[in-house]
Design a protein around this nucleic acid. Structure first.
Lengths: 174, 174
DNA sequence: GGTTGACATGTAAAAACTTACATATGAATC
DNA sequence: GATTCATATGTAAGTTTTTACATGTCAACC
């Protein structure tokens, strides 16, 4: 269901788009909450077309591009999902799973990795902050802001844990 | 791979555990970064046993419980993954996907939903904060703290967006 | 003695997702 | 004119994950 909803949302946000366009979105902003490969997106769009949630226009001549547009039915489906569905609140993040477990290593091993993670998230915070400022639409700005807050939280956590481990290791040596 | 790593990490953290115990962990703290159902966990543990990453003790008599313990091989596998693997940084969160798209609705519809989300996350912040305080092990405290920071970010985001939408709707009416 | 609920483990089928294979166009660079 | 790269879409095979089915124990409550 989530992929279908994500595609409907992107089609509302970005207007008529091809599978290729939508795939690129999943590699950018949307990848902070959901992502998918083209091999999953193309068949899903066909299925949505068969269900009447989107309509397709095949561009003649050019690179055989199919542009999909959301229908009223699709809009209704999206709206109902947003209003009526209690979303699954599980999160899946391999990067956070790793963060969670880094403190299992010895301080000499975990500290550089935790500092490196903090740096990775700092880069993302900077990138998303300037992205948020450059966004013209409210929705895109909101989305970039969620990224900023999330990445800031991870940066702060990695820093806090590294500092704590460092302090404890120093106390032990003393 | 992630499920296997998560199981190895839990076995280091919590010591020898049954599939049932591990399933419960995925319903609690760990669900903030990864989760799995028992129907996936039991077969995976059998596979890990076959690979020598864990050993199993079958408790006689009682409810046929199998307790798994991580081996040196398993520890090595976990350590190598933590140190050498560049983790996949995609995140999958249906709840955030929904948050992302709520501003697509009209203000009358989106505002109560955004406020409700903020309340959901506030509850989680409170719960995780007291959990973090009560934790005896550093690792568990770190993990609860990551939860606090993440849930705080989501609460703040939902509040910020709701306020922004409310302000804009008021300006429009004026 | 019966019911309910937590404990405890499993399998089968279906759905979702990833990886790899496959193809073709158009624009830019060399 | 050849190569390279972004555009553009698809399928097949394999892995992972979910949903549903299936079974049995033990403790507490009524």
């Amino acid at each position: 269901m989530s992929l279908r909803i994500a595609l409907l949302g992107l089609l509302v946000e970005a207007g008529p788009s091809s599978g290729y366009d939508l795939t690129k979105h999943f590699g950018l902003s949307t990848s902070n909450v959901w992502s998918a490969k083209h091999s999953q997106i193309y068949p899903e769009l066909r299925k949505m077309e068969a269900d009447g949630a989107v309509t397709a226009v095949e561009e003649s001549g050019a690179r055989n591009k199919r542009t999909y547009e959301i229908t009223d039915g699709g809009r209704g489906e999206l709206r109902r999902w947003l209003i009526e569905t209690d979303p699954n609140r599980d999160v899946r993040s391999e990067a956070c799973l790793r963060l969670f477990m880094l403190p299992l290593l010895d301080p000499e091993e975990s500290l550089p990795l935790l500092r490196a993670e903090a740096a990775v998230y700092q880069v993302r915070v900077n990138r998303l902050k300037s992205l948020a400022e450059s966004m013209d639409s409210d929705l895109n700005r909101y989305q970039a802001t969620l990224g900023v807050l999330n990445m800031t939280a991870l940066r702060d956590w990695a820093t806090y844990v590294a500092d704590d481990i460092e302090r404890k290791a120093a106390e032990k040596r003393a």
